[in-house]
Write a protein that binds this DNA or RNA. Sequence first.
DNA 1: CATTTAACTGAACAGCCGTTCATTTGAAAA
DNA 2: TTTTCAAATGAACGGCTGTTCAGTTAAATG
Lengths: 195, 195
Amino acid sequence: MARKTGSHSEITGPRVRDAALKLIAQHGFAAVSMRRIAEEVGVQAGALYNYTRDKQALLFDLMRNHMEELLAARQEAAVSGDPVARLDAFTRFHIHWHLPRGDQVFISYMELRNLTPENFAEIERLRKVYEDELEHILQDGVDAGLFHLDDTKVTTLAIIAMLTGMSTWYRAEGRLSLDRIEGLYVGMVRRLVGI
Amino acid sequence: MARKTGSHSEITGPRVRDAALKLIAQHGFAAVSMRRIAEEVGVQAGALYNYTRDKQALLFDLMRNHMEELLAARQEAAVSGDPVARLDAFTRFHIHWHLPRGDQVFISYMELRNLTPENFAEIERLRKVYEDELEHILQDGVDAGLFHLDDTKVTTLAIIAMLTGMSTWYRAEGRLSLDRIEGLYVGMVRRLVGI
DNA sequence: CATTTAACTGAACAGCCGTTCATTTGAAAA
DNA sequence: TTTTCAAATGAACGGCTGTTCAGTTAAATG
């Protein structure tokens, strides 16, 4: 049975990526078979190859998509002004954008080693662009005499690790509201840069 | 050919764990086969089952071992005294102990989802013991009026995420010496708790 | 030297893996 | 109504999976 009701290509494609995202985040790339993804979509394994060249391309697409959406959203949310305001905005943006995307964040950190070297390099390049945004804010703050920190690069990585780590324990039904958590992290990041 | 020179059980056992550690850190639990581990040891796959009940037990042993060694080392290195000294000691201990154990750290964070529910619960329990050590230091510092922070639990998790994140980018041949990095993190952790 | 036995082999088991492709389906175009 | 063709099927490919176990080896024991 094929093409049961209406053209499916524009429906099945996203459904394949959604299923892959969910399953890979849950069990890991190597542990999820193409047949399992196909089952989740409600299709035979062979049909997946209408939407991806192979399994590797499916993973890479998920990760590249995640990074490109992140950079696009960041560009839209970027504020200008003094470094303190930009730092606060960065903190809030990072939390707001990453928290509802737990599966993508998880995959983007966990499955790097399952990328081919070329694909890995591309993802790392995009990640670097994002890190550089924060590094520039810190450097500007230091140059303006507003921030007091010992090493811009290390502080950049420390802040991103601290912020991203939240994804591992945050639960919507937890003790603290998202707004409250956001406020806590804004405070911690400020202290970290010596404000 | 069996038992070529001397009794092997006390040699092969650790070699199996070493090979599993290295390969799982490199490729992920699901992506590494028992035959691949056996090949690394220089043995047939069947021989591995003299040293582990099954593949799951092999992973669990690696992770439990990691956590128990961490807690034992921590107990030995624990200092008493004022909260500031204890906090500095915790920071230095965490970095010193984790940095040379990149593979174990990686596995302990990445492969949690490949544990059975019972095994997962046990690892989480051990991790909680470690986190509680830091939380107590922070609470004591707050009670003594030395630390100024908004939420002890969130700050605990933030510090651990920040410290552990270093494992993802630290390279021995990098720009900064281990001592220098340690100093930077001691400073950042201090700032984070409002010293 | 003869015996014991820890350590390991190598084959076998049923089942799953990613990927390809000739074939079938049925909605849309003519 | 007939034709077209995007979309999906289902079988097949060689190869790998975790695990078991009867049989083999050789070091240690008596």
